[in-house]
Nucleic acid binder design. Structure first.
Lengths: 221, 221
DNA sequence: CTATCATTCAATCAATCACTTGAATGATCT
DNA sequence: AGATCATTCAAGTGATTGATTGAATGATAG
């Protein structure tokens, strides 16, 4: 308490920033953006050991970004606040505007200059209503089952070539994944376009779609 | 290039967050929000040594948050992008919503429960136009000289008691400082209210006022 | 009450960060 | 060109972080 209040405040703000300063924690937050999860599920999805994942989660909790609740033996974590998503999004936007390295990586993902503009969620909703579009969900099957855009096909990158024959050659395809931090949709679009298909990426992923209040279909367990 | 593009992207985003994860760098950014500055000026304002300040600046530059330009012997730094301010602001908002510690500090600054709501910049502009308000700039004299709200008085916290007699006892006072990260205005309002004056805080500081496109008066050098 | 399971804590190590000090750069002025 | 000044670099120190391992906690089921 002896330091100045001004510094004390800055320390708190810095704590939040620090929580976002490790790739592992960004991955965890991206997962939590899709819904609450237990420690084990998070560890598996992110490739971290359980102990390590638990430590990161506690760092996130200290920064106030996640909250936990006990459910039987399991501890379930969730985002404290939807504003956290905005913060991650702004972080991404600032990084994309200012860091040449980010642009280079994204360009590499999209396979060159010819990456089309993403489709806005409003546009996609309108096109869905008139049935003039094929929606592709590029996330793993379990995440698809837990909630997806109604009418979407599901295929991971590895499965993509298998479903190619089922797609009409002139269909307009819109791919989406976990959200702005996720690169699956970028890669899927690049692959589809290499095969000559008319594919574009959705702006944002399922969490943003849900945040907009749009319908999400959940598979019966 | 051997790591996955996904991880590479997350590393870049984390780099930006890391740049915001030290109080010293937040102070520097707060200064730069008011206008471009040389290294020496920044070091003095933040209380850092020049060498240390230079190192922090380079970390900020690596994260793409600041840009430098040479002017004679001096190197002048400025914010790369106004979006950085949004990012800092959101960081602050998330911290205030989620961290009890922040609320405690702010409450202590404001001297208890009775802190009034801040005045919006739109409101202040209207009240200024009709002359029904006294505006107080709580920043150091040099920053006041470099630009302030037209008609504002200038007094640091230390000088505040000296100008008390010049204030009409029933005047409505609106205090502002460097911006949301700055606590001078909070403290000034607390002091003025202890003396029974009707003081409130402006929402945001001079950078936000300027960002709104409102008039700023610059003293002739 | 004991066994079991998911999670967290504790101890450790390598790596990184913030800060200090003193020397090196790079542009100006005489 | 040499002197001067602002800034940056380089090296060293103490503190912190991220990851690993193994033990401890805390809630449930028998």
């Amino acid at each position: 308490m002896s330091i100045s209040p001004k510094l004390a405040l800055l320390e708190e703000y810095a704590l939040v920033a620090r929580a976002l300063s490790a790739p592992a924690r960004l991955m965890i937050l991206e997962q939590l953006a899709q819904g609450e999860r237990g420690v084990e599920a998070l560890a598996e999805k992110t490739g971290l050991t359980i102990a390590n994942c638990s430590q990161h989660l506690q760092q996130l909790r200290r920064a106030g970004l996640v909250t936990s609740r006990r459910e039987g033996k399991a501890v379930i974590y969730r985002l404290t606040d939807a504003k956290t998503l905005d913060l991650m999004d702004l972080l991404r936007i600032v990084a994309e505007r200012n860091l040449a390295q980010v642009e280079r990586i994204l360009r590499g993902l999209s396979g060159g200059e010819d990456a089309p503009e993403p489709v806005s969620r409003t546009d996609l909703a309108a096109r869905l209503a008139e049935g003039s579009v094929t929606v592709l969900d590029v996330r793993p099957a379990d995440e698809f089952a837990a909630g997806h855009i109604p009418g979407a096909l599901n295929a991971t990158l590895a499965q993509l070539e298998q479903i190619l024959p089922t797609l009409a050659p002139d269909a307009e395809i819109v791919a989406y994944c976990r959200g702005p931090y996720c690169v699956y949709a970028h890669q899927a679009v690049a692959t589809l376009r290499r095969y000559g298909l008319n594919a574009r990426r959705l702006d944002g992923g399922l969490p943003e779609w849900r945040e907009d209040g749009r319908p999400v279909l959940i598979d019966a367990g």
